[in-house]
């Protein structure tokens, strides 16, 4: 594996006095898709928020593309090249689809092809005819696509995707998985927090399993799919 793009080392974070993460370490290489798996409340979203600077880390270091970004403000981390797609999508409801993309737009990065509007609409074809519609009027699936497209418009080197498949109709999962693979092919690294194992297995090369705020497993996704007892003990799923 090459020099990691994102390296999280010994990260501790939490809300108020309660700690949630206890020394989490993981890495993400360019163009790699890593699934971040864990039960409800394991700390997946907390890890992503802390990596994005939305939650001040209490200990540990964050390195991205050779820079130390620990303790930086979210907007600086975003400008360094990390994109964030939140669990609840958080599109700007009063703005149109095109305007949402415009808010996310940032200059292209060296070595990565630019995510122009036309490339984004090619990635998410259902959005193309809706570009002038207010985001508040979109369906849940369309809002999810828009949330990802808006983040990609910032031309990030890595994207932290928090449960994009949650609440989506099964027919939407395959195109979404296709889009994530496409992003990876275009050189974007993806950290995918997910509860849906099959969806994660369809896109991820590697998996990091979180249990009660600590890493319980870090290895090939295939190992997770093959090892029923691992899944049972960490994720509580037997299927």
């Amino acid at each position: 594996m090459a020099e990691p793009l994102l390296a999280i080392e010994g990260l501790e974070a939490g809300y108020g006095p309660a700690p949630v993460l206890f020394g989490v370490s993981l890495t993400l290489a360019p163009g790699e898709v890593v699934a971040l798996l864990g039960r409800n409340g394991a700390g997946k979203s907390t890890l992503i928020k802390a990596a994005m600077g939305l939650l001040p880390p209490r200990a540990g270091r964050l390195r991205f593309a050779g820079q130390d970004i620990s303790g930086e403000a979210p907007w600086r981390i975003a400008r360094a090249g990390i994109g964030y797609v939140p669990e609840d999508r958080r599109v700007f409801p009063d703005l149109t689809v095109a305007e949402n993309l415009a808010v996310g737009r940032r200059p292209p990065r060296e070595g990565l092809p630019e995510w122009t509007d036309s490339r984004l609409f090619a990635l998410f074809p259902p959005l193309a005819p809706l570009s002038r519609r207010r985001a508040g009027l979109l369906s849940g699936g369309e809002q999810q696509m828009l949330a990802i497209a808006r983040t990609l418009a910032g031309n990030p080197r890595a994207v932290l995707l928090d449960e994009p498949a949650e609440g989506l109709a099964p027919v939407l999962l395959e195109p979404l998985a296709g889009a994530i693979l496409e992003m990876a092919k275009a050189g974007v690294a993806v950290l995918l927090a997910e509860q849906n194992l099959d969806f994660a297995a369809a896109v991820a090369d590697r998996a990091v399993l979180l249990a009660r705020g600590a890493v319980a497993f870090d290895g090939p996704m295939a190992r997770v799919m093959a090892d029923a007892s691992l899944r049972e003990s960490v994720l509580g799923v037997s299927a």
Binding site: W75, A78, P86
Partner: peptide, 24 residues
């Protein structure tokens, strides 16, 4: 204008605007 779009977006969700790289 972009400034105007940012105002509208931030009126709704400041944190998200920052997470998209806008200097708050």
């Amino acid at each position: 204008t972009r400034f105007g779009l940012l105002i509208q977006a931030a009126t709704r969700d400041r944190e998200m605007v920052a997470a998209l790289g806008v200097n708050q």
